[in-house]
Nucleic acid binder design. Structure first.
Lengths: 160, 160
DNA sequence: TTAAACCTTCCAATAATTGGAAGGTCAAGT
DNA sequence: ACTTGACCTTCCAATTATTGGAAGGTTTAA
């Protein structure tokens, strides 16, 4: 099985499969005589696992841990649950953050007539110190390199 | 006003102020005799606008448009409302996407005893094709370079 | 005069993914 | 046998927003 077929079978782009290999998320693929990567059923199984974990919003770092646990015959379910729980917590935090932003924005929009006149409460709020208290309150400090993935994966299998 | 004071006054790090200048989001600052950037009240006003728009989850690209509208004395409120509305739509989509991921994960967690035995429905679901139908369904295709910002800004004013 | 606290530019890293160039390989059709 | 197209390879760069650091110049206060 070449990388293209593995890509179609797993839903992960060939580019990303190579990338996952480069960063050590998956072992180095065996190579054909002429250097083509070769994948078997078990490799696909792993790639599918990765794709589903990605779809569940896990970061690569988290998936790395999950893979180790998955491959450990004697793994304690406790550890997996811990990982998933802390991930869920992050997810929920991000959700409520986005929600409060959305609510504020929604209110601003509701108060804007949206006609051809320059009068606009949205811009007014963004430019007026006092009127924007809400933003400072609703948006909590948040780290850039959160392990909550920005978006779930596209299941990009070209069903040719 | 030097860049450090502008940073404290606006809540945007000096690094980012230079970056915003480099990408053309803000005009090039005037420089002192020895090359130090200099900011006045109006500059701070713009930076504050940017910081609030960032806190509202707008991407730099969106903020660029907002700034143009803001500075246009004859802007139609309609355009601003359109921009804000499409941004809100993206926000809501991201929220519901994250919510369905969170729900799925939450169910998996609920079914995991989380003891010292290796039996774990979380890993089982991630590794079993059929059991994971839900992931494929709940996670909609989604572009990486969405204009919904990953997280709102930290209001990082050192209140010295 | 010297030290601390600024400022400058430039370069690199982050996370995950995509794009493209330049070139090698394989299978099918002519 | 030869060409064509669809593969594959590696490497390098871009994306977004932000931070970190190095190496060096400036200002201010002691």
């Amino acid at each position: 099985m070449n990388i293209g077929q593995a890509s179609r079978a797993s839903g992960i782009s060939a580019k990303m499969i190579r990338y996952y290999e480069a960063i050590g998320l998956i072992p180095k693929a065996t190579r054909s005589y002429s250097g083509y990567r070769h994948y078997d059923e078990r490799d696909i199984h792993v790639l599918l696992f990765i794709n589903r974990a990605r779809a569940a919003g896990f970061s690569i770092a988290h998936i790395k841990k999950l893979l180790l646990l998955w491959q450990d015959r004697r793994r304690p379910a406790r550890k997996v649950k811990q990982l998933a729980t802390s991930h869920l917590k992050e997810l929920r935090e991000k959700i409520s953050e986005l929600q409060s932003i959305a609510e504020t924005l929604s209110q601003l929009i509701a108060h804007c007539r949206g006609d051809d006149r320059p009068d606009c409460p949205i811009l007014d709020t963004l430019s007026d110190k006092d009127a924007t208290q809400e933003f400072a309150e609703t948006s909590k400090p948040n780290r850039l390199h959160s392990s909550v993935r920005q978006s779930s994966s596209k299941q990009c299998v070209k069903t040719k």
